[in-house]
Amino acid sequence: MKPIIQATQLQFSYGAHAVLKDVTLSIDPGEIIGLIGENGAGKTTLLNLMLGLFSVRRGQLHLFGQQPGAPIAKQKIGTMRQKDMVIRGVTVQEVLRLAAAQYPEALNVTTLLKNLELTAIAKQRLTALSGGQLRRVTFALALVGNPDLLFLDEPTVGMDTNAQQAFWRGIQQLKAAGKTIVITSHYLPEIQAVADRICLLRNGEIAFQGTFQALQEQYQQVEITCQTALPVAAFENLPGVTAVTKTGPRLNISSEAGDATLQALAPVLADLRQVTIKRESLTDIFVHLTKGVIA
């Protein structure tokens, strides 16, 4: 299968400040990719390069086999930017009709308004809408061209809970329809619910790329607590163990390879009492990864 987006050793700098360093990424048709990372990690820069808003100067980047910003690629792309457009003097329906007219295979505006539950505000001026309503109109603008590839930059910021749920339901429908979607967000649980893969950026580099399952398997941070009479030395050399502390009979073991450490503990289990095992959540892993704790 030919990838829809292919980035190879992509680099980008603002003057002397390197924002992206050797980013290599491939996205296949129908995939949903979560582009995550802290502020300033390079997510928006990568998105802007993909959209053709920034020029590729080092490395290679192709969308649908074309250079970013090529007219043929633009026909197949829908974009939801962080900032909503507030155009004076026009209604929701009018701006959607204008957008639809720019694309060769646009969706029917009336149907789209109905599907996105925007019919009630179709004749309202954009200047009269709330922040959440504007966000939904921005989503509609991204969809109206019937794109094969969608870029969603912090899509749910400003939406209320109901709108957020409706939005993610919409994303699931798009996924079922085989659309390729690139989402940037700070909210890991949102991404986790829909994304097939994540691409975690840290300081302009890809710190992790793969499925959530792979992420959890790769970063098995585990805290084991128990009571035992055995000495600390009995645990220090177990596989994956990074730290062992003992206060009286209470023992704490930190491991970066939870499964391996637990297997190695099996022969001494009879000597352990009140064992508790705490695995790190995905959010904890994300925090550690973005802070560079796990490298």
Partner: peptide, 18 residues
């Protein structure tokens, strides 16, 4: 100027017709 500030020009640029 207002159109550029509101992102309308960028939106037009991203559309197939430019």
């Amino acid at each position: 100027q207002r159109d550029r500030e509101a992102g309308i020009l960028q939106w037009c640029w991203l559309s197939p017709t430019g």
